[in-house]
Design a protein around this nucleic acid. Sequence first.
DNA 1: ATACTTGCAAAACATTTGCAGCCGC
DNA 2: GCGGCTGCAAATGTTTTGCAAGTAT
Lengths: 144, 144
Amino acid sequence: MKTRDEVRVLFKEKMVPLTHQRLAVYEELCGRRDHPSAETLHVSLKKAYPSLSLATVYKTLQTLHELGMIARVDSPAAQARFDAIVETHHHAVCSACGRIEDLFDPRLDRLAAPRAKGFVVTGHSVHFHGLCAKCAKARRTIPH
Amino acid sequence: MKTRDEVRVLFKEKMVPLTHQRLAVYEELCGRRDHPSAETLHVSLKKAYPSLSLATVYKTLQTLHELGMIARVDSPAAQARFDAIVETHHHAVCSACGRIEDLFDPRLDRLAAPRAKGFVVTGHSVHFHGLCAKCAKARRTIPH
DNA sequence: ATACTTGCAAAACATTTGCAGCCGC
DNA sequence: GCGGCTGCAAATGTTTTGCAAGTAT
């Protein structure tokens, strides 16, 4: 969690205007640990900022994400993707093209269950993210 | 990958009618390793089954998933969820209520990168799934 | 025969976009 | 003042649903 002044500096560094809405969204998100959706944030913020629109929340979340100030939990793909292999395995997801590769590695299958109080673990999955061979090559060939 | 007869037995065991469409969706999914979306599967299947509707593909994928014959990759939540903590950490996701808890465990941060040919890893995340304390308790109190 | 499924179309969501007017810097 | 942001509304894209007609067992 950053102080309001640290946030101000971050925005100035990146040459991105800091508006009331952006500050409000960021502070609301910092104030909760339940990983809210855009919709949920919007509902909460409406109380203090009745004119705030849902579209602005979406745009702001995207901006904050690009600034590296917030993270998205889970899937980089909005759309569900399916797999005929139900046995335990893991995935490498390409951030550039969305390609998903299977990984079979017994070491990844044997991770210790978390010591979260009361959470009953039935399984786990590991996602590596990065660039697939094709996209990594393309990026080396044509930088920027 | 299961043979057509094994699939037939599986459906019979579960008392679920096996239709041409279901067999087609399952065999198409088994035949590819690119983790297609419902839409992608529908496009491919249209060639052989022009009358197959997208809604049926969705319903079939749901059915196959409930039978444990296929897996969904990634997020159990369709909707994006956000996190103000950008430092490396991991998550426990409740399958019942969707609650997402943070996990901080340095052992999970130091996983070996996959030996997939050419994949450039920039990071990884671990999701444990199961039941949160609340849902686990509810299920013990009122079984079924 | 009959219960369950399919296909169609429409609805329900989640998210993005275009644009006029407003606001931070 | 100016460029970028906001809010509105409409568009887009994905997934779900209701229902009449068809089909597997």
